[in-house]
Nucleic acid binder design. Structure first.
Lengths: 109, 109
DNA sequence: ATTTAATATTGCAATATTACGATAAAGATT
DNA sequence: AATCTTTATCGTAATATTGCAATATTAAAT
């Protein structure tokens, strides 16, 4: 064993898990937050922002991209990474919905 | 190597990453959603809800608990698990805040 | 054309995760 | 007390992740 049994769960559950998993690492949270912070999407200096080697960051960026959380457009020499707002909206909506459901519940613990 | 370099990141980043990591698996999303769905916190039937073996579910519950997302109170023979609303609120606030910041940005991609 | 700069890929070692059978622990039931 | 029920833990195999050095790739600059 060792591999996640995705086939047992719904597409929605897998989709949310894919996104949360991608954000489930402090380096990727840091990258995510950096992309939110910078006002332009012309990037190329993410490596200097983090205390990790360039290949490691490249790998983390790839994972965020695969999860659909960020987009990367090649801009000449460098690559312009930015947040995919649709994905973030999905996460926001998910937790908004969860919170709403919890409010309606009668708390017993 | 192989271990996450948590020491390089802020406490807040690590805290968010810990929670998103815990939700970064479809089985744990399924458990999380089940605990939201059921109206009472008297549980004990999570194992029957999921297509995974009992030790596997027990392990997933432990991870959700370690991440602070759920609470587990021993209730006689069985254990009563329920959502920790404070943790969920933190996640909700985080993504609300992220969304807000994104709205204020000038989109260039 | 050569060099420089930015990013990606490969290969690999260390570590973590996922899953489950076997077994343990502890309260409930008979 | 013996048994049942529920949950946790241990041990272990399969797989995934993390991190980086070395190298490749691609476009800009000289």
């Amino acid at each position: 064993m060792g591999a996640t049994k995705t086939e047992h769960f719904t597409d929605k559950q897998n989709a949310i898990a894919t996104m949360t998993k991608a954000l489930g690492h402090p380096a990727r949270i840091a990258i995510f937050e950096y992309l939110i912070k910078v006002d332009t999407c012309i990037c190329g200096d993410i490596v200097n922002e983090l205390p990790l080697a360039q290949p490691t960051i490249s790998q983390h960026l790839k994972e965020l991209k695969n999860a659909g959380l960020i987009k990367g457009n090649v801009e000449g020499n460098s690559v312009c990474y930015c947040i995919d707002e649709k994905a973030v909206a999905k996460l926001k909506n998910y937790f908004d919905n969860v919170s709403l459901k919890l409010e309606k519940k009668n708390n017993c613990c």
